[in-house]
Nucleic acid binder design. Structure first.
Length: 257
DNA sequence: ATGCCCGGAACGTCCGGA
């Protein structure tokens, strides 16, 4: 059994006590982090290693940044999403863990639409689709987890009409997400919880979004066919969102046999 | 409501977030 979580922590330095408490209580085997908001040398690598974690980081000053924590050794660490050497934003890191290829990704937000940021989001998604094709051809089971900044359907939005023009919900964003899935990948939460419900992974800090349960489902796991064959469970852990000094995202887990 | 909150960088307040 392998339990993998993904969590946009909204600054690993501001969130370190929350993250450490959660690691001790939730006991994941692998954790994919996004929005660490620090350079590699400022990531709390020593603290995590002292707690028994293997660490791989792809950081950036102030913005973005992704990392992988693992109870098992990390091999073949790859930083940056292929396809644009001029892209300096730290949004992708990949490693092999016990023969499983695992990626932590932070897909661009893309607002406002239309505009340069939305075009960057769509271009980044096309690069992710191209990379997923490469991963499928490598014939190694893989898991792409992270903050996709996509609500796949209106069922994933507390107020679909109000969000219809947002980059997270735009038809162009959803079409590229479907194109990615249609390569043969399984979106774990939807596969195991197909019924509509208020299944969210993000609640804005503003306007009482958390107490009102006005959330979005934007953090996802996409699994290759061989990884999907091992999928036993996928669940959202709402606990951390209710803590003091919480991230605006909460972790989501998959369990593989 | 073009508002609300948060972290980072910086020390003004703005940027980015979603």
């Amino acid at each position: 059994m392998l339990r993998i979580a993904t969590w946009n922590v909204n600054s690993v330095k501001a969130r370190l006590p929350n993250v450490m408490d959660w690691l001790n209580s939730a006991c994941p085997d692998v954790v994919l982090l996004q929005e660490i908001k620090c350079q590699d040398e400022n990531f709390p690598t020593m603290e995590f290693e002292a707690a028994g974690w293997h660490v791989a980081v792809h950081g950036q000053k102030s913005y973005n940044g992704v990392a992988i924590l693992s109870r098992h050794p990390l091999d073949n660490v790859m930083r940056r999403l292929p396809g644009d050497d001029a892209d300096e934003q730290a949004r992708y890191i990949q490693a092999d863990i016990l023969g499983l290829r695992v990626a932590s990704l932070y897909l661009p937000n893309g607002n406002p639409t239309p505009g340069d940021k939305f075009e960057y989001k769509l271009a980044w998604m096309r690069r992710l689709i191209a990379h997923a094709k490469t991963l499928l051809a490598a014939d190694i089971p893989f898991v792409l987890g992270g903050d996709y900044n996509i609500c796949p359907t209106d069922a994933d939005v507390y107020d679909p009409a109000g969000w219809s023009d947002d980059a997270l919900c735009r038809p162009e964003s959803r079409a590229l997400f479907r194109e990615l899935c249609h390569l043969g990948l399984t979106e774990a939460f939807h596969a195991l919880h197909p019924e509509p419900g208020r299944h969210f992974t993000f609640w804005d800090y503003q306007a009482g979004a958390w107490p009102r349960d006005n959330g979005l489902r934007i953090d996802h796991f996409l699994l290759s066919p061989a990884a999907a064959d091992r999928l036993l469970a996928c669940d959202i852990d709402k606990g951390p969102r209710g803590q003091e000094k919480a991230s605006d995202h909460t972790p989501i887990f998959i369990t593989l046999n």
